[in-house]
Design a protein around this nucleic acid. Structure first.
Lengths: 214, 214
DNA sequence: CGTACAACCCTACCAAAGTAGGGTGCCCAG
DNA sequence: CTGGGCACCCTACTTTGGTAGGGTTGTACG
């Protein structure tokens, strides 16, 4: 690659965008790396400057805008390479991005050397994706606010059962797993529902959505 | 503040940590800002260097470690100021952090000038928090992967009903809202469960956990 | 010592969720 | 025009979830 190529980074967190841009400029062979924080800025930049050789796109743009943005970018700048970065380890995200036809996907957690390697790979015309199969196993939700059973006013046993309820287990399987009568489980569940002020397990699930037990 | 104070940034994404650290060093009056990416590194750094005046902590450390980390830091470095930064706009997060007794909370999305202002406020002995009441309204879940009903093989009506199921509505209320018989709703739900390969609505909820319909 | 509470068991009952089978009207493609 | 898919309705049934009664044990606390 020549020394005259430019790149563009879009991330809704200004400091992050600037940090990645600076890193690319100092560690990869780009003559200029710009940083923008929203989609409007991105289009404005593309309209007023020469097309960059590479655009780095944060996956979690506000409102889930990134997927539509990617297809628009592919349509309007077919020769520009696209690298998507994400803060979480969700295999589904990588699959979606890969299906969108971009050149690479990378986790923000990766070491700086991996960044450099990925960028060079993409600039050479290859693609960069992690082994999706490997990651299918741990498709967990990383951004869950931890909550202890005590904060909810639950006993230890209730907390244990609540976590199984939150994972979708029916009473029968909970009873089997804990060597209890289904009735006993029901009573624990009733206690939990009372404590949470809800009428059934589904309401409990929606009430605690986005939280992680213990 | 003097020109000899140092700061420390902990964020599990190396580029982000480095970017924020560089920004603090160039825009605030710190003589040295270090960046670490995990808790072990943090303790190692604190043991081998002079205590920093300020530690910037990313809220979403792996495994939800940040809350316990904050209380440990308060215990072991009571004179060090703590600023927590987070990528999302969740009022509950800010409340938790404030309860942990740190000096400030800030969203990564904020403009760089706000960062500078917040840092200066904290370094002067004040605290920096957003108006939690204002934000209680939009305590939404930002990181939800969008999924269309078509991708799931569902009809439009089924998708509509699925989204209500995902929000915890029982069949009776769905029927009332859509002017349908409860029976008709049940049949739609049955169709959805079949399509998703699950046995009941609770399994459907856990299967689609972290996704957002349409 | 007595009280309180958590955890466990039981029977019995009712409401909600889900299944099966059969029927109507609509619209669209072959 | 005919078959198929979709949305809607119905009756009837089974399974699961949740509540309400009452009872036993163990343990922690004043």
């Amino acid at each position: 690659m020549t020394a005259q190529q430019t790149a563009l980074v879009i991330d809704d967190h200004p400091l992050v965008a600037r940090g990645i841009a600076d890193f690319l400029q100092s560690h990869c062979a780009f003559s200029l790396v710009s940083a923008v924080t929203d989609v409007e800025d991105l289009w404005r930049h593309l309209a007023t400057s020469a097309l960059p050789a590479l655009i780095v796109v944060d996956f979690w743009l506000p409102g889930g805008a990134s997927l539509t943005l990617l297809s628009e970018l592919k349509a309007k700048c077919p020769h520009t390479l696209l690298l998507v970065i994400s803060a979480d380890d969700n295999a589904a995200v990588e699959g979606k991005v890969q299906a969108a036809g971009v050149q690479g996907f990378l986790n923000k957690q990766e070491a700086p050397e991996v960044f450099v390697h990925a960028i060079n790979t993409i600039m050479n015309g290859d693609t960069w994706f992690n082994n999706a199969e490997q990651r299918l196993l741990n498709a967990y939700q990383p951004n869950e606010l931890p909550v202890t059973s005590q904060e909810l006013g639950l006993t230890a046993r209730q907390g244990q059962i609540l976590s199984m309820v939150m994972n979708g287990l029916p009473n029968k399987r909970i009873a089997k797993a804990l060597n209890l009568t289904e009735q006993t489980v029901k009573e624990h569940v009733s206690g939990i529902l009372n404590r949470l002020g809800v009428n059934n397990r589904v309401e409990a699930m929606t009430k605690l959505r986005g939280k992680r037990l213990e």
